[in-house]
Simulated scan of single mutants.
Amino acid sequence: MKHLKICLLALLVVACSKDDATDIPLDEQLLGKWTMTNYYDDTYLVEQEYGVLKQIVPEETDYAIEFADNPKEIKTTGFLRYSWDEYELVNGEKVFNGYSVTNFMDGDDGEGFHTGAWTVEDGKLIITDVKQQGPDYFEEYSTTSSIELKGDNLTLTLDSAQFGSHLSGEIIIEYKRQ
């Protein structure tokens, strides 16, 4: 009887220590609103031999995304302000050339890296949207982001090369669940 109690106690400890979030599919864990906490873009233009470093200006940013389920769309709101600094590589080191400005993305106008229809495939976030290429011509495109989800913190990382073979680097965007 004593062994049975010990076995039941051990089973209870294991059952209680299991993280319930791992039982929920990743696409369901993403549902809801997320506020941007960090934006970092280090993209290098290979052919032009210079890079661009973009970083969030937190005190001027209130950007958010919402993963909706029916339909599966990502909606954006708010405003992202970021600094933009150009550099060139000299002996493997970034040398900033003094060109520095700020720019923005307006979520209320649907701007951002994660807008449009979404799905999760093999642990990756796939976004499909359309871009207007001319007065009457629209082109569909897709982007892929790796997903890191830890509690209420979400990190989406994009490989810059998916936007053209002339680019390298990555874009890291961090969010906190609202």
Results as ranks from 00 to 15, higher is better:
residue 88 E to Y: 10
residue 167 L to G: 05
residue 119 T to Q: 14
residue 33 K to S: 13
residue 131 K to M: 08
residue 89 L to Y: 08
residue 100 S to C: 05
residue 23 D to T: 11
residue 122 D to I: 05
residue 129 D to Y: 10
residue 5 K to M: 10
residue 74 I to A: 00
residue 141 Y to D: 03
residue 133 Q to C: 11
residue 3 H to A: 14
residue 170 E to P: 01
residue 148 E to K: 13
residue 140 E to S: 12
residue 75 K to R: 13
residue 167 L to A: 10
residue 80 L to P: 03
residue 18 K to G: 08
residue 102 T to W: 09
residue 168 S to W: 05
residue 25 P to C: 06
residue 99 Y to F: 14
residue 96 F to Q: 10
residue 60 E to I: 10
residue 39 Y to K: 05
residue 27 D to P: 03
residue 142 S to D: 05
residue 21 A to Q: 09
residue 92 G to Y: 05
residue 99 Y to L: 13
residue 98 G to N: 07
residue 160 S to H: 02
residue 115 T to D: 08
residue 79 F to P: 00
residue 98 G to F: 08
residue 23 D to L: 10
residue 130 V to L: 02
residue 1 M to H: 10
residue 1 M to P: 05
residue 100 S to H: 13
residue 1 M to K: 07
residue 77 T to S: 14
residue 84 W to V: 15
residue 147 I to S: 03
residue 91 N to D: 13
residue 9 L to C: 10
residue 176 K to Q: 15
residue 160 S to Q: 04
residue 105 M to C: 07
residue 134 G to V: 03
residue 152 D to A: 08
residue 128 T to Y: 03
residue 16 C to A: 14
residue 70 N to E: 08
residue 79 F to D: 00
residue 72 K to N: 06
residue 62 D to V: 10
residue 115 T to S: 11
residue 82 Y to K: 07
residue 169 G to V: 07
residue 160 S to L: 01
residue 28 E to I: 00
residue 34 W to E: 04
residue 170 E to D: 12
residue 120 V to C: 07
residue 58 P to K: 09
residue 60 E to F: 13
residue 158 L to C: 01
residue 158 L to T: 11
residue 47 E to Y: 11
residue 71 P to G: 02
residue 104 F to Q: 11
residue 73 E to Q: 10
residue 59 E to N: 15
residue 177 R to N: 07
residue 30 L to Q: 03
residue 116 G to K: 03
residue 78 G to S: 05
residue 63 Y to V: 11
residue 50 Y to E: 12
residue 88 E to H: 11
residue 104 F to S: 15
residue 54 K to I: 03
residue 169 G to D: 12
residue 62 D to K: 14
residue 123 G to A: 08
residue 57 V to S: 08
residue 19 D to K: 04
residue 111 E to Q: 14
residue 29 Q to I: 01
residue 50 Y to N: 13
residue 115 T to C: 08
residue 44 Y to M: 06
residue 127 I to N: 02
residue 172 I to L: 04
residue 163 F to L: 12
residue 91 N to V: 00
residue 116 G to R: 04
residue 13 V to C: 10
residue 151 G to V: 01
residue 154 L to G: 02
residue 67 F to M: 04
residue 29 Q to D: 00
residue 63 Y to S: 09
residue 117 A to F: 06
residue 61 T to N: 12
residue 105 M to G: 00
residue 5 K to G: 03
residue 97 N to D: 14
residue 28 E to K: 13
residue 145 S to G: 00
